[in-house]
Design a protein around this nucleic acid. Sequence first.
RNA 1: GGCGCGUUCGUCUAGCGGUUAGGACACCGCCCUCUCAAGGCGGAGAUCACGGGUUCGAAUCCCGUACGCGCUACCA
Length: 617
Amino acid sequence: MNTYSRSDITAPIVAARFCGPPSAMLGQEKVPCPNRQGTQTLARVRAALFPHLPDVAVCRNVAPLRRFHAGCRGVVGCGPSALCSACALPRDENACDDSTPDSRLPTRADTAIIGAFLPPCEETRVPDPAADVRVRFAPSPTGALHIGGARTAIYNWAFARKTGGTFILRIDDTDPERSTAENTAQILRSLRWLGLDWDEGPEAGGAFGPYFQTQRAHAYRVALERMKANGSAYPCFCTAEELERKREAARSGDGTPGYDRTCRRLSADDARARIDGGEPHVWRVAVPEDRGDIVVDDAVRGETVFPASAMDDFVLVRSDGTPTYNFATVVDDADMEITHVIRGDDHLSNTPRQILVFEALASPVPRFAHLSMIWGADGKKLSKRHGATSVEAFRDEGILPEALLNYLALLGWSLDGQTTIVSAETLRATFSLERISKNPAIFDAEKLDWMNGVYIRDMPPEQLAERMLPWLESAGLASRADFELRRAWFLALVPLVNERLKRMTEVVPALGFLFASEITLDPASVEKALTTAEARTALRGSAEALGTLDRWDAASIEACLRAVADSLGVKPKVLFQAVRVAVTGSTVSPPLFESLALLGSETARARLVSAQAATAG
RNA sequence: GGCGCGUUCGUCUAGCGGUUAGGACACCGCCCUCUCAAGGCGGAGAUCACGGGUUCGAAUCCCGUACGCGCUACCA
């Protein structure tokens, strides 16, 4: 492992590819690029604005904030990953710490502020979206991961895997009231349970962090500075009451609601004076006057056009300094170089607003793909009333992760219209944005159950046995030690149930009679199969005959019982049902002879006897 | 109110100008069978929301209408 310490920094000057005004340039040199073949042009620039810094160079369009050790504060834009440009050592997240910033080096905020004053770079990097896909799933930890979010995560993951891109997990925890660490933990757990792995994000690290919005305050500050500098953001001092009044007026008026841009007309001096005077204010985007209609080329919906006139100067930063959602996500997406935004339909109307911010930041606008919502069976928004909605609830109700993944993947996406069983492997090999459907979908729990059954049936026996154990354990019927001790016996359980289970929760009711020492006979079953004199005779005959068996296996038991039925003149079916109820407690059970074989001769005969006693009177 | 999105069997979907509108779940029937399942075979189920166009021809393209949903916050 490569280690790194602050003293390893030999040059106090941070260099990067330079594209600022020549007057600011102190020197220029071509150096070998540490990250790829060839050279890059480095420049040294006097940043007069930042006297506490040494000579600094930045390029605003070459991803100025990327790819350096967390503690290095370096700047570079050259290829994905590999070396830290400030120390030229391989990046190793764990070896760096960000706790003691070096005052000689520009902070991230500094570099970006400088960038804002520089003209656009001639060599704007044109990302090739096909070659370098970066997608993100950005849940808000205000609750458990629900199936809508899970589906969004699945699509993002599948798309990243299919394209060989990067899947990023980011936590949108800007709502301090409702965001909890436990929710975050649960979301990570749910994603992992589904088999989704992320390349960057919590517990995975990555060069574009931090991945929690609450830790990204500086990024929002920097972005706002840039927007202030290029005139795309302005302070607004209007009070809530004033705004409310304006909204009312607009709503009853010509039908173009939104902020009336009063404060946009303030002079710069005026605004500065009021800010300096401590007057509370928010920051708004200045939607360009000459901006034409905004078209969103959505991968799912095609081109949708939003009239620019409908865009008002919405708030970017609240009066308490925190960013609004539409600002924060864009800053994050821009900083993290997200190429494709795959998310819920409810954000489609926000997209033109966000595009405006991307443009103001001079960042490439990602491709969008908006997914339709998932509804409950009644066509209403999914809620507790519809039963399980969180991933963990499905887990607890005996749904297999691969089944939930499969079901959710097909709820809004199709491979070919025929295929219904899609493994994670085929998903990651075949997923495409083009085959996402536009229609909202209603969640069909019955189909999920069917699919779960398919996965249970198709599972290798050893694996099913293994997966059944936790359910038996939590019911107090078996233990791990038990399982290890009698592996063959547990394995033999599988064929009894694998064709009969829809959910893993059914394991215990289906197999309980094989574990419990005592069983209770289901009254309705007794009524149906045990009340006749014929049935009691059958039980007695069966108990006796089985006692003489020297081979205790399914075939022998079957032969024996058929012989008993024959000699007693009782219909085999009648005898079997009587025995079934006596031994399993119910008219519905796994196959009788196999069940008896696994139960053991002793217990089986004991139950036949006690059932006679129970029904005698 | 304004803007945007959506509408193919009960449900999920295929379809991208010419199909008997295909598949899956659920449902019904038959077969198999020691119960329940699973499996096999078959069936019913969609005037492609509605109304206009364009076209020789439209579920597919265009325009309206209806209904549903989203956004229109110093929510996310």
